[in-house]
Nucleic acid binder design. Sequence first.
DNA 1: TATTGTTATACTCTATAACTATA
DNA 2: TATAGTTATAGAGTATAACAATA
Lengths: 155, 155
Amino acid sequence: MKLDNAAPFDAKTAAKQPFLTVMRELATTYQAFCAYDEAHIRETGLTSPQFDVICTLGNTSGMFMNQLAEKTLVTKGTLTGIIDRLEQKNLVRREVPPENRRCFLIVLTPEGEALFEKIFPVHIAHLKERFDRLTPDELTEIKTALQRLKSVFAD
Amino acid sequence: MKLDNAAPFDAKTAAKQPFLTVMRELATTYQAFCAYDEAHIRETGLTSPQFDVICTLGNTSGMFMNQLAEKTLVTKGTLTGIIDRLEQKNLVRREVPPENRRCFLIVLTPEGEALFEKIFPVHIAHLKERFDRLTPDELTEIKTALQRLKSVFAD
DNA sequence: TATTGTTATACTCTATAACTATA
DNA sequence: TATAGTTATAGAGTATAACAATA
């Protein structure tokens, strides 16, 4: 919900409900980050979920579908499709472990690893470029503020 | 990108690159908020973009497709589909202004207004419930921190 | 010619539930 | 019976570009 727009959120209402402003700031800050982040991801020819899978598999010896689904926060059915498409692009491979043939170990192919090693550091550098505009103290304050905010949504 | 998962993000790396921690906190905080927010939205029978449109139109006298697209951050082609589905549900209506018949004024129907008036305050109350766990000072600090963070992504 | 919005195309992701094969 | 993953189903959103109607 991008509550930014709702007409009832005029200045008068916001003044009475300061939390609305915080909510909007969270949403717009995340959106600003994502716009910057995703524009760069799209240049790799991958979608965000695909990029997420490649990054999750990078520097590991592989992961099972269920682990991967949990890490990337998609359901197993959805992950099947994502892995299918990455397999078509020759970036990952399904390996059947002999000891449990119910599972697949998802592994980066050499092409997948090459892509990971090519794009990952570049992407991090691209992000760092902006975060470097903050001082160490500011980074600490922001981190603390976010942790406090997150804590109210923990069940 | 949910960089939370990437294996290279071990504690050692994070210590050298404190911004990675901030990035993760932003993503996980937003995700925690969204999980709470969207679970409640889904109970209305609307998707997030649909709910967003209803909230944007609430308490206005209508909006043109292009305005609405800009406000809700979707392209005009995508918005056409969203409005189509809201029209099927009898929640919005396309009106043709006589002075410019190229445009459509998108307006809430009585059913749409009734829904808005029913769900909007309840949704706000649902959110407020959690934000009330923060003190006024904390809210201010968080707001300031988010604004500072957002500023580095402004072009 | 420029603008508003629709349509066409094609893909990706989403959730849910039934299903297969293995354990 | 339980688990791992696939498949089936159905929908929703996404981008892009070509298009029609109007200005």
